[in-house]
Design a protein around this nucleic acid. Structure first.
Length: 546
RNA sequence: GGGCCCGUAGCUCAGCGGCAGAGCAGUGGACUUUUAAUCCAUCGGCCGGAGGUUCGAAUCCUCCCGGGCCUACCA
């Protein structure tokens, strides 16, 4: 009973869409009829009021009745998507939703020109419409627009998710986020909270006279963090490039250039595994402030997170799963060394050796002593069930212990200060203590929220640290800081002392929304490519994906 | 990477060796204050894919694809 002759349509349609279902065919036919009647896809609409405006206009008119007899029924003209339809024969109710909310429309056949009511035959839930008329309250009390004129703006060719259960399959929700957003108020809410988080962070820095900058995403060499980059290629330059893994090195070059307060909220890309906490691209906040140290930054971070919580949630106590994160009480402060002692029972000397394991070894036999220290730590790690890579350095064993035994326990906001120098090639060493740097990380909910240093600005020391990292790299560790000549040149021109901060904003969004998966706060999270039905059967003997 | 679980109509789901099912949506009809409208009728399927077991497979087995949770890795 398809009223549209298939042959009348562009030739490609049928063949190109073999799975085109009856539902879509019906809607395409309605679209054709709509066009034949001269409707559909206008550039302008009569509906310039939002649903919210219409509702509040009606409510205020009820509060202050206009002069009697003035024909004072408030009017409205709205546009939006039809999310519900109840047809009762000679009358119909539609739910219309725009970005501000929803408004019910009433269409009575006798109140509309004949063809205007008949237009309902071409309407499906999901279509966009415009409508104009007077506002009233129905018997059941809902403010409703009595439509005097309306039109279909856009046909939805594909059906929307079912109205009651909505869209629940996580994969479909992520892959077809537009449908998720249409169907699920919670998804819209999370998206708004995520946006409010970024906006609040930006305002915080702007109010403190930080300059917001944008530094390059495409780089010859991705530096500033320890991570594998994505690689790409520039045709005109005939050059391999990497996508940035951090914004740190460029921002510091701006300090050299004389901007004392800079920040960037920038997408960075790390070529690592996917998980509920890791998306390969994420929003990284970095800020640098000259003439300040990491103590100052710690105070600033505390103010920042509290400010965001107040802006976004209006409170400093934030429920998240089974716990309530208390941002109001003084935030715990400990040191790397104390934290390992308290939570893992591991006592470390000032040079990060296991207490008692460095024994009688003197500087003269440092090599031997260092490897003994390393082995002693590795032994402790395996005692505690912390897996250690065979060639792991002493520092990376410490790091593994920290991650496994300490970090998960830091649920309430906790600053951990003073890290091993070996783990922090861009941070300044503590005075008289070259093995330890002025660095802190902030932990909330058991994972890293922020990472900050008193920035290393001695170019000679910086070069030595980077060369040390380069040695590790050449011995096989791919995820290690790389020496960046342009950056070193800049530091050699003189970089002011500064406190720097890095913070993954999705984690802040997760805290603010109460979500446990980064995929909920990222609008379009990375997913594997879905198998193409036609693309099956790899050629026999082909080597396939490695 | 390891463990557990999931994939059936556009959407939400049942069925778990014996004819492929329901609700919503769609289509046709009734209905002028409904709001998960209601009522009657009806259309809709490569049961994720490929092999295997069986007289018989959505159901059991193997592999593959995609996803979820946990765990590990990624400071």
């Amino acid at each position: 009973m398809n009223r549209t002759a298939p042959g009348a349509r562009p030739a490609t349609t049928g063949a190109a869409m073999p799975t085109e279902g009856e539902l879509i065919a019906n809607r395409l036919a309605k679209r054709e009829q709509l066009l034949e009647r001269g409707g559909g896809y206008p550039a302008r609409t009569i509906g310039q009021d939002t649903c919210q405006e219409a509702l509040s206009r009606f409510e205020s008119s009820e509060a202050e009745p206009a002069a009697p007899g003035a024909g004072a029924e408030p009017r409205a003209a709205v546009s939006g998507r039809v999310t519900g339809q109840r047809v009762l024969g000679r009358a119909a109710f539609l739910d219309l939703r725009d970005g501000s909310g929803t408004l019910q429309l009433f269409l009575g056949r006798d109140a509309l020109p004949g063809e205007q009511y008949a237009l309902l035959e071409l309407l499906d839930v999901g279509d966009f419409v415009e409508a104009e008329g007077a506002l009233f309250r129905t018997r059941s009390g809902e403010v409703t627009l009595r439509v005097e004129s309306w039109g279909i703006l856009v046909k939805a060719l594909r059906p929307l998710p079912e109205k009651w259960a909505g869209l629940t399959d996580p994969e479909t929700r992520y892959r077809e986020r537009h449908l998720d957003l249409v169907a699920n108020e919670r998804s819209r809410e999370v998206a708004r909270l995520a946006a409010a988080t970024v906006s609040s962070v930006r305002r915080f820095f702007e109010e403190r006279d930080f300059l917001e900058v944008a530094t390059p995403v495409l780089q010859e060499q991705a530096g500033g963090a320890a991570a594998r980059p994505f690689r790409t290629y520039h045709n005109a330059l005939d050059r391999e490039l990497s996508l940035r893994i951090s914004t740190e090195l460029h921002l510091k070059r701006l300090l050299v250039g004389g901007f004392d307060r800079v920040f960037e909220i920038g997408r960075v890309f790390r070529n690592e595994g996917l998980s509920h906490r890791h998306n390969p691209e994420f929003l990284l906040l970095e800020s640098y402030e000259a003439y300040r140290d990491y103590e100052h930054v710690a105070g600033m971070v505390e103010a920042l997170v509290r400010r965001v919580a107040l802006d976004v949630r209006g409170t400093l106590t934030i429920p998240h799963g089974d716990v309530v994160v208390d941002l109001e009480s003084a935030w715990a402060r400990t040191t790397y060394r104390e934290a390992l002692s308290e939570h893992a029972g591991i006592q470390l000397t000032p040079s990060w050796a296991l207490e008692g394991a460095d024994g009688r070894q003197d500087a003269a036999v440092a090599g031997d002593g260092a490897s003994r220290e390393r082995d002693a730590l590795a032994a402790v790690a395996s005692e505690r069930g912390v897996p250690i890579a065979p060639g792991a350095s002493r520092a990376s064993i410490l790091d593994a212990l920290m991650q496994r035994l300490v970090e998960p326990r830091l649920v309430q906001p906790t600053f951990v200060f003073d890290y091993p120098t070996e783990l922090s090639p861009l941070a300044k060493a503590r005075e008289g203590d070259p093995a330890t740097v002025e660095r802190f990380e902030l932990f909330i909910l058991g994972y890293e929220f922020a990472n900050a240093y008193s920035e290393l600005n001695d170019p000679v020391e910086q070069r030595a640290r980077m060369e040390e990292q380069a040695r590790k790299r050449s011995s096989g560790d791919e995820e290690v800081e790389v020496a960046d000549e342009a950056f070193l040149h800049a530091v050699e021109a003189g970089m002011p002392p500064a406190g720097g901060l890095g913070m993954g904003l999705e984690r802040l969004m997760m805290l603010m929304t109460g979500e446990h998966s980064i995929r909920e706060v990222v609008l379009f999270p990375a997913l594997r490519e879905r198998e193409r039905p036609g693309a099956a059967e790899p050629a026999a003997g082909a080597d396939g994906g490695s």
